[in-house]
Design a protein around this nucleic acid. Structure first.
Length: 256
DNA sequence: ATGGTTGTATAACAA
């Protein structure tokens, strides 16, 4: 079973890239973030034409998550934390179940700046994620998505100038470590060297060619799922195509 | 330090 996570930064704008990439990628379960479209306008037909089913929850301009599953997989999807707290973050959280596997797909709030109220929202979002991880820690479970945290100095090109960045500040890395405690970073099992990035800022000239980026998209797995992990890699190709997202897909293979 | 770019409520805001 091949899983992939991809922040598309508008699913409608990225449809040509998805139509080129998805059929060739061998992906069975794809988790999207930042679809940026209301449900009435979500482009479900192109996914169906490629042989996939799709579940989505979005809003105008911002946020939005989706689960894309190869036709024939028996999948159920629920949106939001469903923990009774407000807001529910239905357009940032999707929980998918298929067979014995459960996958939590999140688009973690970026946080704006370390002195902005949204940075605290980001931390409370992680706290609510932690509750799901606690619940699922004995299961075949993965937490995937745009987690908006580069966990270590090896996950950014220049850690020295990012100390106060909301995706790298020490307080968010520590918060992230506590949230993900007990889960393994699947990419790092197979690609331990620095220079593995999933996000390349549009504003950095020739970021892809110069490999100036961030590793902020992740696949994190429970011990029982890690036992079945067979490979994981970043597919840099779509980042180099015409009209790319600023993120690129991260894939992980499991013997399932 | 600042600014750089792209996406969408095509004007600001988010990232």
């Amino acid at each position: 079973m091949r899983l992939a996570t991809f922040n598309v930064n508008s699913v409608r704008t990225r449809m040509p890239i998805l139509q080129r990439w998805l059929p060739e990628s061998g992906t069975d379960l794809l988790f999207l973030q930042e679809t940026k479209v209301v449900d009435a306008d979500f482009p479900a037909e192109p996914f169906e034409a490629m042989g996939y089913k799709v579940w989505f929850r979005g809003e105008k301009s911002y946020n939005g998550v989706a689960v894309v599953a190869r036709e024939g997989l028996d999948v159920s999807v629920a949106f939001g934390f469903e923990d009774g707290e407000d807001p529910d973050f239905a357009t940032r959280v999707a929980l998918a179940r298929t067979g014995a596997l459960t996958v939590l797909n999140t688009y973690v709030p970026q946080g704006k700046s370390i002195d902005h109220p949204d940075f605290e929202v980001k931390k409370s979002f992680l706290d609510r994620t932690r509750k799901i991880i606690e619940r699922e820690k004995g299961a075949l479970f993965a937490w995937v998505g745009d987690l908006n945290v580069a966990p270590t100095e090896a996950d950014v090109t220049n850690p020295g100038n990012k100390k106060n960045h909301v995706c790298f500040h020490i307080s968010i890395r520590e918060h992230f470590d506590r949230t993900a405690e007990g889960l393994s970073d699947v990419l790092r099992l197979f690609r331990p060297e620095p220079g593995e990035y999933t996000f390349f800022d549009y504003r950095v000239k020739d970021a892809l060619a110069r490999n100036i980026g961030w590793r902020i998209d992740h696949v994190l797995a429970t011990p029982s799922l890690v036992e079945r992990a067979r490979d994981s890699f970043v597919d840099r190709e779509p980042r180099g195509w015409e009209r790319p997202s600023d993120h690129t897909p991260l894939l992980a293979d499991f013997d399932l």
